[in-house]
Design a binder for these strands. Structure first.
Lengths: 152, 152
DNA sequence: TGTGAAATAATTTTTCC
DNA sequence: GGAAAAATTATTTCACA
């Protein structure tokens, strides 16, 4: 049910190197391979570990530009929000979509090749999103850091 | 140097399931295991694949609350930015830090247990960041979606 | 230069204690 | 939780187009 120090250590390590071998992992947490393996299986089965993924280099992949877009909807009826969210989910460049507290505001995190490519994304997708009252885009000049690792 | 369709398919798959076995992967991209393995090694060596990581469940980990914090600095001299960025990097709850275009604005993405825990993070860390002129926090009510997968 | 088949090495996963 | 066996997988080697 809950996590002891060894579990936490395992999670910390796997958040950094998700493909670390069970042998290495077991050594670093002072456990036998089989005991360590059982821990990992439990952490997966109970949902602490959601997934293992490869992280790509945004620059190498040609999308070094990050843009945060803040959107206010005209209404906040559930149908309006649902329609909006369904439409947003279809835009490949959108990595995150958060419904913000307060009025019907969303924050989107979007990646693009450059500002011109973002203009295209805006024309092609963002400008056609349903129920939008206001939209404000903020460009990131530089990503200081970005991690997927949650505090354990 | 560049990526053909098979490379792109490999990257798409590994972005979803980073621990997929090379045998499975090779089958899905219609390649022999060794040919597929060589492709993956190249993608790693050339830096398209930055890392493999485990993604944890924020709710299970006790940090279901996401907060975006927008910070304006008093000055934009390099030393001021550097000092700020170094201090930010030491806060475990901060997952992302972006320098925004325009004036000296930063956007931070922070996770917390709840609003009270965020208040603690604010007191303990944010309020002590050097060079800060303004700070505005926006709470996410709900994460509609969030992916680490870049468009390929 | 890129590919596939087969052999070897390493690792994961299971079984039993 | 640990040890050892079994099954699977990664990685290398080599031959071929």
């Amino acid at each position: 049910m809950s996590l002891d120090d060894t579990d936490k250590r395992i999670l910390t390590l796997l958040q950094k190197k998700g493909r670390m071998s069970n042998a290495d992992l077991s050594e670093k947490v002072n456990l036998s391979p089989s005991a360590c393996h059982r821990r990992v299986q439990r952490l997966e089965a109970e949902g602490y570990i959601r997934d293992y993924v490869a992280l790509l280099d945004a620059r190498k992949m040609g999308v070094p530009t990050t843009v945060f877009v803040e959107i206010t909807l005209q209404a906040q009826a559930d149908e309006v929000l649902d329609a909006f969210e369904r439409a947003v989910a279809l835009i490949p460049a959108v990595l995150e979509c958060h419904l913000m507290a307060g009025s019907a505001d969303y924050i989107l995190k979007i990646v693009a090749e450059d500002t011109e490519d973002f203009a295209r994304i805006h024309r092609q997708y963002l400008s056609r999103l349903p129920g939008v009252a206001q939209m404000q885009s903020s460009f990131a000049l530089r990503t200081v850091f970005r991690t997927t690792a949650l505090p354990v």
